[in-house]
């Protein structure tokens, strides 16, 4: 079956006066129908850039320099203007970190929902309103029939994010891109939102790209995970495998530096240094200055690709199962 989203060798460039920056480099992954792909990595890893490239929301001068993006088998990376807008509303829904940026503060949320539905679905005004109320009920807004005429500022942060999810899903898209949807929310609200996202997508078979820096959220929500570092894929695989038996030293380091109940007060594992800036990317493997397993060949160009470690980790010297066990 064709995957819902398929990204091939995606590269994003930002030309600047000091040279060209490459926030996303040669990234490839698929998301199947009904699958949740978690995209993790520290800030600046290029997670949002990759997501924005898919929905054509790159801010100039950033642009797709090479690679292909297919949605349900149709190539979409070269779409412009109205075609892209139609695709965004109808086939791809978006949920961002700050729900306020996705909602028009001057419009009642019901109007925003019906407007989106009328633009993309062949239904009448009164049907649209009924469906708007149903959508709000589905995302768990109490008293949806009354709240449909409220303005965004009359909702709490968690409720607003629910409205945004209702809005993203109302045109029944085949793909949802959720960029840090719970980062600004409290744990208890985060749990509600993640559960909601999981349920709706499972029920409808929507594919989800769940971008987050929180390994815990990935573990609980994602089916597969893509770990990004300095614009590249470091590791890609089923979430349980990647998190319990990481092959890439960076993934291993990330897991080690996350405080864990079972490790108690033992010193946290430290990855020395910080992620390099895009204008000073090291040769070869971008992780080599921080990597405990680095060897001479790690600095050679071209750097490692996923093919170097069983199609799962972009590393010349991946961790062996014995090392981790």
């Amino acid at each position: 079956m064709t995957p819902t989203l398929s990204i091939h060798n995606l590269t994003v460039d930002i030309p600047t006066r000091h040279g060209t920056l490459r926030p996303v480099q040669d990234v490839s992954y698929d998301i199947a129908q009904g699958e949740i792909l978690g995209v993790v990595g520290e800030s600046g890893a290029g997670k949002s850039m990759a997501g924005n490239a898919v929905i054509g929301l790159l801010n100039p001068p950033a642009h797709i320099a090479s690679g292909e993006i297919h949605l349900n088998g149709t190539r979409i990376d070269h779409l412009q203007g109205d075609d892209m807008r139609r695709l965004r509303g109808k086939h791809i829904g978006m949920v961002f970190q700050d729900p306020l940026t996705s909602l028009n503060p001057l419009l009642k949320i019901g109007d925003q929902l019906t407007e989106t539905m009328l633009a993309h679905l062949d239904i009448s005004q009164s049907d649209a309103r009924k469906r708007a109320i149903a959508a709000l009920e589905e995302v768990g807004i109490p008293g949806a029939a009354q709240r449909v005429d409220s303005y965004p500022h009359q909702f709490s942060g968690g409720m607003r994010q629910r409205v945004v999810i209702a809005l993203a899903l109302c045109a029944e898209p085949s793909l949802i891109i959720a960029d840090e949807p719970t980062t600004a929310l409290d744990v208890s609200v985060q749990a509600q939102i993640i559960a909601l996202l999981k349920r709706l997508c499972r029920d409808r078979g929507t594919a989800v790209m769940l971008i987050t820096h929180d390994m815990g959220v990935i573990a609980e929500a994602a089916d597969r995970v893509a770990v990004m570092y300095a614009g590249q894929l470091a590791e890609l695989g089923p979430v349980r495998d990647v998190l319990t038996v990481p092959l890439h030293p960076y993934t291993d380091g990330l897991m080690g530096s996350t405080p864990l109940a079972s490790r108690g007060k033992a010193r946290l594992h430290q990855i020395p240094g910080a992620m390099p800036r895009l204008d000073t990317l090291p040769d070869g493997c971008a992780f080599h200055p921080r990597c405990p397993r680095a060897q001479a060949d790690c600095t050679r160009n071209p750097g490692p690709t996923l093919a170097d470690a069983q199609g799962r980790a972009a590393c010349f010297h991946p961790l062996l199962r014995e090392d981790v066990a």
Partner: peptide
């Protein structure tokens, strides 16, 4: 809030 870019340059 959490999503702050790191700008760590070589000295």
């Amino acid at each position: 809030m959490v999503d702050t870019p790191l700008s760590d340059s070589a000295a």
